[in-house]
């Protein structure tokens, strides 16, 4: 199949950036989007150009490293799907695609489609953990955790840290990311002792990183590859207000 790509090129964070057009032939419907970009890059390199910088590692939708905006869709026109799990059969032969990086003030563009998501690491660093040192743990079955609670904790813990929730939000808010971690840890008995501090510290860090406020449109849940629920945000707000 054939596609026309308008792809975002930007040399660094200071550069203004622009779309560059490429025509691709010989594409297979089973190719994933990163595989299409591999194909494009070989074409660019062989004609003496600078290949498109993009990140993609596991290509199984779990490492959270990839993620572009394709024709205005965060990650993918498919719902709850990462860019790497999007295949060309999702597009029509002859279609034109606009491919851009995730955009948010807190995610500066490094080059082309590469962005800096270290703000997420700093939010985790501020309290997204249970403060247990190696060796301190008690016997695993001495803490009983109800099946449904364990499943609920997993639902929140499944976040892959890709940043789609921020990219789709009109305010570039990181509330879904932050609340998923706050709730995962704080709803479990092991994470309860630090719950009050955790929510406070992580929200303070989130604000310091320049993420916007949440106006609860629910757009984040729609694009989340792990379908993390917006109810995490209400639950986190409850923890913030009432401890």
């Amino acid at each position: 199949m054939k596609l026309t790509l308008h792809i975002w090129r930007q040399t660094g964070n200071k550069d203004k950036g622009t779309f560059e057009t490429h025509h691709l032939d010989d594409l297979a419907p089973d190719m994933s989007v990163p595989e299409m970009l591999d194909h494009l890059n070989i074409q660019i390199i062989k004609s003496g150009g600078d290949p498109v910088a993009f990140e993609s590692d596991c290509r199984e939708g779990i490492c959270g490293q990839c993620g572009f905006v394709i024709n205005g869709h965060i990650h993918s026109p498919e719902s709850h799907t990462t860019t790497c799990q999007t295949h060309l059969r999702s597009f029509k032969d002859g279609e034109t695609l606009h491919i851009e990086p995730f955009r948010a003030k807190a995610f500066p563009i490094k080059k082309d489609l590469m962005i800096d998501r270290s703000a997420f690491d700093r939010i985790i660093e501020s309290g997204g953990y249970i403060g247990v040192n190696t060796g301190q743990a008690n016997e695993a079955n001495s803490t009983l955790i109800n099946h449904d609670l364990a499943e609920k904790a997993f639902d929140a813990a499944a976040c892959i840290g890709c940043g789609a929730c921020v990219a789709t939000c009109k305010n570039a808010s990181a509330m879904l990311f932050t609340s998923a971690k706050v709730n995962h840890l704080s709803m479990l008995p092991q994470g309860a002792p630090e719950a009050a501090q955790r929510v406070k510290n992580m929200i303070v860090q989130m604000d310091a990183e320049g993420f916007g406020s949440c106006t609860f449109t629910g757009a984040c849940e729609v694009v989340c590859p792990q379908s993390i629920s917006v109810f995490n945000i209400t639950e986190m707000n409850g923890r913030w207000l009432w401890g």
Binding site: Y129, I130, V132, T134, G135, Q136, A137, N138, E139, A140, T143, A150, E151, A153, F154, A157, H184, L185, L188, Q190, G191
Partner: peptide, 10 residues
């Protein structure tokens, strides 16, 4: 397993 449960692995 003890360590992972203590860390909150669900």
């Amino acid at each position: 397993i003890d360590q992972a449960v203590a860390q909150g692995v669900p």
